[in-house]
């Protein structure tokens, strides 16, 4: 039982760290899509010569700092507005073979917990499949579904539900 408690504690700590990054991201993926698209061409180049100080994954002016794909109700297709962002991450991954991402699928709170696990999985898969098309091997992508279990927004109307119908791209070590 102690082992269980300890591992639970560790997991919680890890979760707290991981959660921090997610929260720190500007929740602007939807609103910022124009900016994101214009940056796509410039920033999506292989960044082998990246500066020591600026982490492109954290730089708010870099499209790679955008991590979330949002979905319509019951849907799991990646809408066109998010393709430049997924493409940019794909290019980063193909040029950084040691980098790995977890794609985390989420749903809003309505309906069955179990169906939402499956729907969140399909949302994460849709991002992974697009990355595959851009040349990222499965070995660099892990998908996981949180279903409706880890809502970022906690109110009970569409303003929160649309925020929670989402996949997040999280880099290993973040």
């Amino acid at each position: 039982m102690k082992k269980v408690l300890l591992s639970t504690l560790l997991v919680s700590l890890l979760a707290a760290c991981a959660g921090q990054d997610v929260k720190d991201q500007p929740q602007a993926a939807v609103e910022d899509r124009a900016a994101a698209q214009t940056q796509a061409g410039a920033d999506a180049k292989p960044t082998g010569q990246q500066s020591v100080t600026a982490n492109p994954l954290k730089d708010p002016s870099n499209i790679l700092s955008k991590r979330s794909v949002y979905y319509d109700l019951d849907k799991s297709d990646v809408k066109a507005e998010y393709k430049p962002m997924v493409e940019a991450h794909s290019k980063y991954l193909t040029s950084h073979k040691d980098a790995k991402v977890a794609v985390q699928g989420n749903t809003d709170e309505r309906g069955s917990h179990e169906y939402n696990i499956a729907l969140g999985n399909r949302r994460a898969d849709s991002v992974k499949n697009m990355m595959n098309v851009y040349g990222v091997p499965n070995s660099q992508i892990e998908t996981v579904s949180f279903g409706e279990e880890k809502p970022r927004a906690t109110c009970h109307d569409e303003s929160c539900w649309k925020e929670n119908r989402r996949s997040d791209i999280v880099y290993q070590g973040e």
């Binding site: 639970t8 997991v11 919680s12 917990h113 179990e114 696990i117 949180f146 279903g147 279990e149």
Partner: peptide
């Protein structure tokens, strides 16, 4: 008891 979700 857990700090992470339990379902089903």
């Amino acid at each position: 008891a857990s700090k992470e979700p339990i379902i089903s």
